[in-house]
């Protein structure tokens, strides 16, 4: 079990107020991380329109992520990618009952403030958009709205959690339709987790301190993570997932759920594919069910995809040194 506590004592995002005669707290770690726990074993789908959001909801998506352009189109268009139009986000919030997330640029505190004021359910501080600050991510404890961040390895994941992220996802290589990078990233995280867990189990505090230095994160967070043997927040797969089998494969690697970006709405069979990816994620332990899901999609309708070796833009490198 993952503990939900972990609040900074003075987190500005925590709001105390009365509801009728009852005292309440909003924006606590339990509520932010707890929200992510409710998404487990689900699929979050990237959407750009109300119509796509409704297709996603009907297919069984656990939430939608609103973008101005799907990652594949961001890659094609070039230029600066920013947060989506607020009007479209609001229209989508009014038309589906599942949670609505939106992306802000890495480090762009005010884009995040705007999304928070819009009342989106979660903010993705995302490398798909052009970073606003190459050296600092947002200090997410200042927000009542929970954040999800991308990570390629344990150090990135823990640094984001230390900044207040309530959920982590792999970065993968967005908009490529190629799952290879997401696989590398989750395997990196898993192998580093095994390493710190074995150090912890051996009781070698000195080595654990060295690990904290190497990962550039506080000793207490490394110790907590090592004792759990997993990230202390929910961890999803993202970046390049396009088929039901892709989703099921990432679930077998220990991911808690799936983000699908361009994979669904850049394919020519979006509706069936959306349903099929949900089925494969739910029943990933059963190869017969995943086969049924895979049968619902036609490989000739999949997005063409890109070789991740020869990309002009590697989105995953954005914000990775911070």
């Amino acid at each position: 079990m993952i503990p939900l506590s972990g609040d900074l004592g003075n987190a500005k995002g925590i709001v105390r107020e009365n509801l009728g005669s009852i005292e309440t707290r909003r924006g606590t770690s339990t509520l932010k991380r707890g929200f992510a726990h409710m998404l487990k074993n689900g699929v979050v789908m990237d959407v750009t329109t109300v119509e796509q959001a409704q297709i996603a909801e009907d297919a069984g998506a656990v939430a939608v992520m609103v973008l101005d352009k799907l990652p594949a189109d961001v890659r094609k268009a070039g230029g600066v990618a920013r947060t989506a139009s607020i009007r479209i986000i609001e229209e989508i919030m009014d038309s589906v009952t599942i949670p609505v997330m939106a992306k802000c640029r890495i480090g762009h505190v005010y884009e995040a403030q705007v999304l928070g004021a819009t009342d989106v359910d979660m903010i993705d501080e995302s490398e798909v958009l052009t970073p606003a600050d190459e050296f600092h991510h947002i200090w997410k404890w200042d927000f009542t709205t929970p954040f999800v961040n991308g990570a390629r390895n344990l150090g990135e994941a823990l640094r984001r959690i230390e900044e207040g992220a309530a959920m982590i996802r792999t970065k993968g290589e967005p908009g490529t339709g190629n799952v290879a990078e997401a696989v590398i990233h989750i395997k990196n995280v898993n192998s580093e987790l095994r390493r710190i867990k074995s150090i912890y189990d051996a009781g070698d505090e000195q080595d654990l301190v060295s690990m904290a230095r190497e990962l550039k994160v506080s000793y207490s967070l490394v110790e907590e993570t090592a004792s759990l043997g997993r990230l202390p927040v929910v961890n999803f797969a993202a970046g390049g997932i396009s088929t039901p089998a892709d989703a099921a494969y990432l679930m077998t690697l220990g991911c808690d759920g799936i983000f699908v970006g361009s994979g669904i709405f850049k394919s020519d069979d979006a509706k069936e594919r959306a349903q099929a990816v949900v089925l494969a994620t739910t029943f990933w332990e059963d190869p017969d069910k995943v086969k049924e899901a895979q049968k619902m999609v036609d490989e000739r309708q999949s997005m063409l995809g890109l070789d991740t070796k020869n990309l002009e833009l590697r989105m995953q490198e954005r914000g990775s040194t911070a």
Partner: peptide, 29 residues
């Protein structure tokens, strides 16, 4: 009913009719 995620809250509640005294209720969407 209470709003979106930002309105999710923790509050002390009790279920006295079934003998459960005050505890922290976690309300998420």
């Amino acid at each position: 009913a209470f709003g979106r995620q930002k309105d999710s809250f923790e509050a002390d509640i009790s279920l006295e009719k079934i003998g459960i005294p005050k505890f922290m209720g976690v309300f998420i969407r």
